[in-house]
Write a protein that binds this DNA or RNA. Structure first.
Lengths: 123, 123
DNA sequence: TGAGTCTTCAACCAAGTGGTTGACAACGGG
DNA sequence: CCCGTTGTCAACCACTTGGTTGAAGACTCA
């Protein structure tokens, strides 16, 4: 994986455990232990997942005694959404233009049919 | 990487070369060779990238003699967008509620200040 | 048919990923 | 001050990934 930001964000979300952590954090902040609870992997593994999310800018951690409450950084989603929307819309416009071309072809075809009918009637 | 669809889509886009291919395809369909042209990796590597995108449902390929024109399947973007929006909005609402709470605290603080002032004036 | 073009398949390799266990740092409550 | 709790770091392992090269399949054209 390349180390640019967009790559890190997509890669971070390409794992169901990490997406689960994100969806849990959308409800509210939580400690590493709380986040690890639903999963049957070690707490160290979850700690690593959180590090990946933090490196991607999706999550931040603060200090509360020996606890490290995790917080979802929702702004970073915009980066993804913008990238996605750019190409989704671009592709959509292309399809719309294609539809327009096809519609125009149908009009032309109808005109040709009409001419053909007229010629047939004349002969 | 887990093999569920959302994971495949995110993982597919977690690579700058594959995002480049997607952005090229948003302009219009292209053959494997055309897609490989801008990159200084082998055509086989690009063919593999296209396979990853196809397995994620982001790209489809048709047949034109020995060519395999690639086509962007924009609908699959909706899957991601929906996932992202769900948690982005959920988090946003939470922040809005927090803002409301903070605003209310400020109001309470102003009331307390006011009482304090009144008491100070009375004493 | 035979040469040339476009693409994929197969085998291989270095580097990265997600998991483990063990050690340890940091902190709060008896 | 020690002990339990919380979390990270380090080393290791199996597996995946992104790249390579070489061969072969599928097709066109002379």
């Amino acid at each position: 994986m390349a180390d640019d930001e967009l790559s890190r964000v997509f890669a971070a979300l390409a794992d169901p455990t990490r997406r689960g952590i994100v969806s849990r954090l959308a409800v509210g902040d939580a400690t590493v232990g709380e986040l690890a609870d639903p999963y049957d992997v070690s707490i160290q593994a979850v700690s690593k997942h959180i590090k990946v999310l933090a490196d991607a800018g999706l999550v931040s951690q603060s200090k509360d005694a020996q606890r490290r409450p995790c917080h979802l950084e929702a702004e970073i989603f915009d980066l993804m959404t913008k990238w996605i929307e750019r190409y989704r819309l671009q592709a959509q416009e292309r399809y719309d233009r294609l539809d327009a071309v096809l519609a125009e072809m149908h009009v032309d075809q109808r005109r040709a049919d009409l001419r053909h009918l007229e010629q047939g009637a004349a002969s």
